[in-house]
Simulated assay, not measured.
Amino acid sequence: MKKAVWLTFDLSVTGDYEGMYTWLANHEAIECGDNVGFIQYDSSGDLINELKNDIRENVDITKKTRVYVIYRDDDQKVKGSFLFGKRQQAPWTGYGSVPEGEAVDEL
Rank of each mutant, 00 (worst) to 15 (best):
G45A: 13
D10S: 05
I70N: 02
E100G: 02
K52A: 01
I39Q: 00
T22Y: 09
E31Q: 14
G80V: 06
R66N: 09
M20Q: 04
S97I: 15
T65D: 00
A4P: 07
T93R: 06
L51E: 03
Y17C: 00
R56D: 13
D73K: 06
W92G: 12
D34R: 14
K64Q: 15
A29G: 10
T93Q: 09
N49G: 05
L11M: 04
W6N: 04
P91W: 11
G19T: 03
S81M: 13
A25K: 11
V104M: 08
K77Y: 15
L51V: 00
G45C: 08
D74M: 11
D74V: 10
L107K: 11
H27S: 03
C32M: 13
S12G: 10
K86D: 09
E57L: 15
W23E: 03
D73N: 15
Q89K: 14
G101A: 12
S43A: 15
G15I: 03
S43G: 10
L7I: 07
Y95E: 12
Q89D: 14
M1I: 09
S81W: 06
A103K: 14
E28C: 10
K2W: 03
L83Y: 05
K52T: 09
Q76K: 14
Y41S: 05
G15C: 01
K2N: 08
A25C: 10
E18P: 01
E102F: 13
F84D: 01
G19M: 05
D73R: 08
L11S: 00
E31L: 12
V59H: 01
Y68K: 12
I48R: 00
K77M: 15
F9A: 07
W6G: 04
A90N: 15
V98R: 10
N53L: 14
I55A: 02
L51S: 00
V78S: 06
D34S: 13
E31K: 13
F84G: 01
A4F: 12
I30R: 10
T93A: 12
D105E: 14
V67C: 01
V13E: 15
Q89Y: 08
F82H: 09
E57T: 14
L83T: 07
I39A: 02
A29W: 00
V59R: 02
